[in-house]
């Protein structure tokens, strides 16, 4: 595998007394796309929250390009090149589309080799956002908000992009657009974790797959190796 962009190692995380991640370990290679799969409540979003510093783990280590970031506050983890497209989009609703982008703007890091993102390049990728640049983001459709959430994450010129169920609640045509965007981002060399409930969306695009089951890592494999292996998928996801 290439150099590690993001490593979660032996993570134990809790919500109150509820032990939601139990010794979770996986690794995202640089320039690769890791599909993180699991049923509802398996701990996928919690992995994202731990990675961006929203939920400090009780045990274990998070590393970004070899540097430990465990228990750093979210803004410092963002400064190290980790960006999140959160579940439910969570765009800033009292801000315009343009303002949503500029508040997240960060100069390109010297270590970042891929595209240099700014409002103009984000608008070029999502022309519909350009048309609505001065509208409040609260007035956007679900698909447009998803594009804005992706654009906002890109404005930080991240080295690691975490995408938490970007297809959730979107019409099939919009889902296809979002997946095309993710494919382009992968081709640009960005290291990506794609969280999804639907394996069908992930298998075509991912290099590696991690399946979580009840807060534990159940499967770690390449997508190619798993594609034809129906047993594990049925057992952990109840599909195929």
């Amino acid at each position: 595998m290439a150099n590690s962009a993001l490593v979660l190692s032996g993570i134990d995380a809790y919500y109150g007394d509820s032990h939601v991640l139990q010794k979770v370990s996986f690794e995202l290679g640089e320039g690769r796309l890791l599909g993180l799969l699991g049923r509802n409540g398996a701990g996928k979003s919690t992995c994202m929250n731990v990675s961006v510093g929203l939920l400090p783990p009780r045990a274990g280590v998070v590393e970004v390009f070899g540097t430990p970031v465990t228990r750093l506050p979210p803004e410092q983890i963002a400064a190290r090149g980790v960006a999140l497209v959160p579940q439910g989009r969570r765009v800033f609703k009292s801000l315009t589309v343009r303002e949503n982008l500029i508040v997240a703007a960060r100069d390109k890091d010297a270590a970042t080799r891929h595209a240099n993102w700014n409002a103009a390049t984000v608008f070029a990728m999502f022309p519909r956002l350009a048309e609505r640049a001065n509208q409040l983001s609260a007035h956007l459709s679900g698909g447009e908000q998803q594009m804005l959430a992706i654009g906002r994450a890109l404005m930080a010129n991240p080295r690691v992009l975490l995408m938490d169920e970007p297809s959730e609640g979107l019409a099939p045509q919009i889902v296809a657009e979002v997946m095309t965007t993710i494919r382009k981002l992968k081709e640009s060399g960005l290291s990506i974790v794609l969280v999804e409930q639907s394996p069908k969306l992930v298998f075509d695009i991912a290099d590696d797959i991690v399946i979580l089951n009840s807060g534990r890592v159940a499967v770690v494999s390449t997508a190619a190796a798993l594609k034809n292996d129906g047993v594990d998928l049925r057992q952990h996801l109840g599909v195929f």
């Binding site: 961006v52 510093g53 929203l54 506050p73 979210p74 803004e75 963002a78 400064a79 960006a83 999140l84 959160p86 969570r90 800033f92 508040v103 997240a104 960060r106 906002r152 994450a153 930080a156």
Partner: peptide, 9 residues
């Protein structure tokens, strides 16, 4: 929370 995640101090 989200403001911090996008890097706002």
């Amino acid at each position: 929370q989200m403001a911090r995640v996008v890097g706002i101090r």
